[in-house]
Design a protein around this nucleic acid. Structure first.
Lengths: 209, 209
DNA sequence: CGGATATTTGAGCGTAATCAACTCCCGTGG
DNA sequence: CCACGGGAGTTGATTACGCTCAAATATCCG
């Protein structure tokens, strides 16, 4: 997959902004959208995984979305992207230029997700944030929703949840010790008790440590 | 204005959900939307001020939006509201049932605002959050954008910024001591140095205390 | 003026951040 | 096959920012 990469020789425009083909492919870690890119339409992630984020001074980053196949992203006002988007896995992206009903549904979903995220970031503890992240990662559509394979590093989880990597790591360990999750590989875990996670995520389970 | 209030005698449905008239009026602190209300269309705040919020166990509340006249709010999927909305001042509200262009613009604005909020909540310090709040409150459309009259209490500012009231109060004091703002009444302040506020808000000014 | 409510101030604490080693995992090459 | 190297993750010690608890003060309003 890496062999498909064509290095961006002349930024500022990223590939999505210049590619004439309807579907573009991106290697893992390649920029799909750079802040300021023209945004004629939102985008649909056909395959792969991607994240959108904002940057602040002092090496601060807020990851606003971690998206899998089928997800619409890159909504922008005034025709310019206000968030960066990077592929987390080799990905296929195409313009999303559907009419009102589908467009509205996608925007409403984005609004709902951002409300959840803001609530998480504003009012949940570190443990509740991590549990929320895991619950959301347990995609019911997957063949085995309890077996998770993260496309993201600890740093990216931290930047999504408004924490630092050490805090994420410590709380992962705490969940393992409680038997709620078990590690099944480097970037894989298995959810042993989804209901316990949901209880923690929703804030009803104060949860030690 | 208070005399216009008709007490909601029979919840669960709030007035917006039942009123047949196109425009409904609400007293300060009256519920405009209760979670679970039918949401046939978004709403437009014709006059007044309102806030939308989510609740978590443990008396935790995240205020997701503080809106003034002209603002569209109450976007909902599946025809049901997922956030509560309360009037902050005597308010006039009407259905927002415009066609695609205006609808899209409103939703894109909502997405942009929620991204800003998530970034603030996830990665900004208390001082940066308060400065961001004040900068946003300095509406350029107002007659004197530097003179602010909050429709919200300290508790509500805190619940919007993911802080507690004591922290909000302390940082207000810090900004006053620095001469960036001066109090001009209970719920009023004057911004003396908008550029300093902007610098703090954007995170470039580390800012003592 | 009195009483209730909101805000400010103070003291101390706790969760998550910071700083710093150390371990583990893998891929590479001798 | 194993030594090596580098990055990611974990663990430990300590700090700090914002929270909690408590009390004083200010403001609103009848």
């Amino acid at each position: 997959m890496e062999s498909l990469v064509i290095a961006a020789l002349a930024p500022p425009l990223s590939r999505a902004a210049t590619a004439p083909a309807r579907t573009s492919s991106f290697a893992a870690r390649e920029n799909i959208v750079v802040i300021g890119d023209p945004a004629p339409t939102p985008l649909r992630l056909v395959a792969g995984a991607a994240m959108s984020f904002r940057l602040l001074p002092g090496n601060r980053r807020q990851i606003l979305d971690i998206a899998g196949p089928g997800r619409i992203f890159g909504f922008a006002r005034h025709g310019r992207h206000e968030c960066g988007v990077v592929a987390l896995r080799p990905s296929l992206v195409e313009p999303f230029d559907e009419a009102a009903p589908a467009r509205d549904a996608a925007m409403l979903a984005e609004i709902a997700r951002l409300r959840d995220l803001a609530t998480l970031l504003g009012r949940k503890t570190a443990m509740e944030r991590l549990a929320s992240f895991l619950v959301e990662a347990a995609d019911p559509a997957a063949s085995d929703p309890q077996d998770l394979a993260f496309p993201v590093s600890r740093q990216e989880i931290a930047d999504h949840l408004g924490l630092v990597i050490e805090t994420v790591s410590r709380h992962f360990v705490a969940l393992k010790k409680r038997g709620v999750i078990t590690p099944t590989g480097r970037d894989n875990i298995r959810i042993e008790d989804l209901w316990a996670l949901r209880r923690i995520a929703s804030g009803f389970d104060a949860a030690l440590s």
